[in-house]
């Protein structure tokens, strides 16, 4: 019996179910909630997609043009709506943020789930929840006040890595201003830390306790158990956590906009200012008019962001499916 609804369970007890049971209000309410959620998402996607293609349909910009590295809506020779600098910046800033954040978050989740004594859990978990609740404007403000001047003062000279014999192997210009790719990534890495930590923590807790005790009973150390049993079994959950963190990072606007410098150029060095998709949208939306090509280009950026997040969701599904199949 697949339909174990309230009404069906009660039919066995009574000759004829009452009107309320036949209507089955709770089931209809939750069904309505699901339907309206799907409807909202569908409408939202339809709206953004429709607005996003106006740049091509109405304003006659070819799809290839948005992959140009030049963004200059005020160019004397006609507007150039190259979105590549923003797409590349979003990818780069997010990638570095995840590189910093993932080891920290997964380590923290492992600590909480496997190592931490109860008193430590009682301290760390509420602090993570507080972390989640801190508004992004506060992170951005902290970034401007503390991080940006620190980067500018500490690493203002060229950054050169030298090896003893080979000489300088890597060099890049120092932080001219502190407003930079690095500042954006650092702020983001702190903001996505609670997301990745809590989702991976749930993934680790979902691994049955019997597997742990069985492994330990076979004589493995705790680290061997974590390395060979816990991490492989929870891998899909951890990947989901990282992808969720990625979408959060790629979609964050305010805090990034405050520290990244907002210079519409291709990413070259981590010490240089960039502009992400979200920060360019927030910069320009108030000063452009609904329906003008410039604002249509901003909608196209929203569409790109939507595509990024849909891609990541599909990615998570594929990862999980492949792991289940093997």
């Amino acid at each position: 019996m697949a339909q174990m609804t309230t009404a069906n369970r009660l039919t066995g007890l009574r000759a004829r179910p009452g009107l309320l049971e036949r209507i089955d209000v709770p089931r209809r309410v939750v069904f309505l909630a699901a339907v309206s959620m799907i409807a909202i998402v569908a409408l939202l996607m339809a709206f953004i997609a429709w607005q996003g293609i106006q740049l091509f349909v109405k304003d006659g910009v070819s799809v290839g043009e948005i992959f140009s590295p030049t963004w200059n809506p005020l160019a004397n020779a006609g507007p150039e709506f190259g979105l590549l600098p923003f797409i590349a910046a979003t990818v780069c800033v997010t990638a570095v943020a995840l590189l910093i954040s993932t080891p920290l978050s997964v380590g923290l989740a492992l600590f909480l789930s496997e190592v931490a004594p109860n008193w430590a859990k009682a301290v760390v978990q509420p602090s993570l929840e507080i972390f989640v609740g801190i508004p992004s404007v506060v992170w951005g403000w902290l970034g401007i006040t503390v991080l940006v001047p620190f980067l500018a003062d500490t690493f203002s000279g060229p950054i050169v890595i030298s090896l003893p014999i080979a000489g300088p192997v890597f060099s890049m210009p120092g932080f001219l201003t502190g407003f930079s790719w690095m500042a954006g990534s650092l702020v983001l890495s702190i903001m996505v830390l609670p997301t990745i930590t809590s989702v991976s923590y749930d993934a680790f807790r979902a691994v049955p306790q019997e597997l742990r005790t069985g492994s330990l009973a076979l004589g493995t150390t705790r680290w061997q158990m974590i390395r060979h049993l816990l991490l492989p079994s929870a891998l899909s959950g951890v990947l989901t956590a990282v992808v969720l963190g990625m979408t959060r990072a790629a979609g964050e606007a305010l805090a990034v906009q405050m520290v990244i410098g907002n210079s519409p150029t291709m990413p070259a060095a981590i010490t240089q200012p960039l502009t992400t998709l979200t920060s360019q949208i927030t910069l320009d939306m108030g000063n452009t008019v609904f329906g003008e090509p410039w604002q249509d280009a901003l909608w196209t950026m929203s569409l790109v962001l939507l595509i990024i997040s849909i891609t990541s969701v599909v990615l998570v599904r594929l990862i999980n499916k492949r792991r289940l199949a093997s």
Partner: peptide, 30 residues
Amino acid sequence: PQSSGTRATFLRLVLGGATEATGGQTLTED
């Protein structure tokens, strides 16, 4: 931002429509 009225006015009245610099030494605040 390029769409700002302040920037448009400065570009018109002082820079005479010259192409503004981009890159590492430029920041934008909204």
